[in-house]
Design a protein around this nucleic acid. Structure first.
Lengths: 214, 214
DNA sequence: CTAACAATGTGATAACTGTCACACAGTCGT
DNA sequence: ACGACTGTGTGACAGTTATCACATTGTTAG
């Protein structure tokens, strides 16, 4: 895979995720080939946008024909880096944490949950689903380091998020996905993404309010 | 509140949500006034960006001084429309749905959960927390219509999402927040936001892969 | 009262992102 | 073998969003 340019819009990555997700759920047998127009229809993106997005990374289609469905899926997975298996941990085994742990998405997209952490003594020592142990949050640094865990998902209450982030960083984590509604601070070298559910709800409220006011 | 222009960047709304969330968690007594520099420090946004964001909606600060913390919080809440109480329903009482239902965020940000829906017969008829009933998904249209519910949150498995969306729309819903990893289709008049957890994970994987490759 | 100061609000500018039109390459029918 | 056709890939353009510098305005001290 060749990256022509280092300046890829974040929105492009988001859309690539949409594409690959759709392709994965598409019956590859009945649709061996797909055009940017068809894909755009399903993902609600303009055909030109799709071609542009893909063009950042190379040429994956055949002119006059379209894209080989299975091949395109594999290519995008390669671009996104979801064809390896990232050692991952979830910190905070509340309802949200459990939802993520049960999510079969992880298996499909190359995230391997190694272990979970929580501070509730009643949860510590128990196991999630198959064989994911729940350990105390104080062990985060050691375990992350020892098991070479590269991704940490924070699903704790707001007040604990920064502390947990610090512990993950101390253990040598590479990337963090934070679900707590604050922007945790981490060193420059750590890749961080914040998923703000509250922000999405606020945004919805705003759009509805606009509609009402106009 | 005056809206100077109708073309507000979506990113601005997202940041306003961050600001108001931070202000809400700030001890208003010890910080009666806050500058764009201080707020920017906490929210990891440049001071100029904050002033620009606010300037779309009016003038809320005092030159040479800063912003009245409590007043600014109230103003942003007004802008976002999270000072009313939106009648809301959650469809899909799995782990993710339960996580949201237990989320005390709703109370604070003006979303009032009226009822929940699920298709699992074992869940139907039971209640969540205080007094939120779980009804069968077939009742969605009637209940949404009858109770004048304006916001629907979809936390069902992927395959059910479109069907649920259709039912919500049929019942006269105003806005939908969709957590299923597909882009559901709704009429133009319905406000829709997709929260794609999978997309966030893919994005994280991409960023980590980039770092590895370079 | 006046001058020094502090932090906002905003017009101008730069950077980024998406749209469009069309050249180009591969396919299929005759 | 060749021409009509189809859908990709991309350079040019337009629109959007963020950054910057500074004029502006209220505060405070002497």
């Amino acid at each position: 895979m060749k990256t022509k340019d280092s300046k890829i819009p974040e929105a492009t990555i988001k859309r690539l995720s949409t594409y690959v997700n759709y392709l994965g759920r598409l019956g590859t047998d009945s649709n061996p080939v797909i055009s940017s127009e068809m894909l755009g229809e399903s993902c609600q993106v303009s055909p030109a946008q799709i071609r542009k997005d893909l063009s950042y990374f190379g040429e994956f289609g055949v002119r006059g024909v379209g894209y080989d469905t299975k091949k395109l899926e594999a290519e995008i997975k390669d671009i996104l880096g979801i064809n390896h298996s990232w050692p991952t941990t979830v910190v905070g085994v509340g309802k949200l944490g459990q939802a993520l742990l049960n999510f079969d998405f992880f298996r499909k997209h190359g995230f391997r949950i190694i272990v979970a952490f929580d501070s509730d003594p009643r949860k510590i020592g128990t196991k999630i689903t198959d064989d994911i142990a729940i350990l105390p949050t104080n062990d985060i640094e050691n375990i992350v380091n020892e098991k070479k865990i590269s991704i940490g998902i924070i699903t704790t209450p707001t007040d604990w998020a920064q502390d947990v982030a610090d512990k993950l960083v101390a253990g040598g984590i590479k990337g963090i996905l934070n679900f707590a509604p604050i922007k945790v601070k981490v060193p420059e070298s750590i890749t961080l993404r914040n998923v703000s559910i509250t922000s999405e709800l606020d945004n919805l409220a705003y759009l509805l309010t606009q509609k009402k006011r106009q």
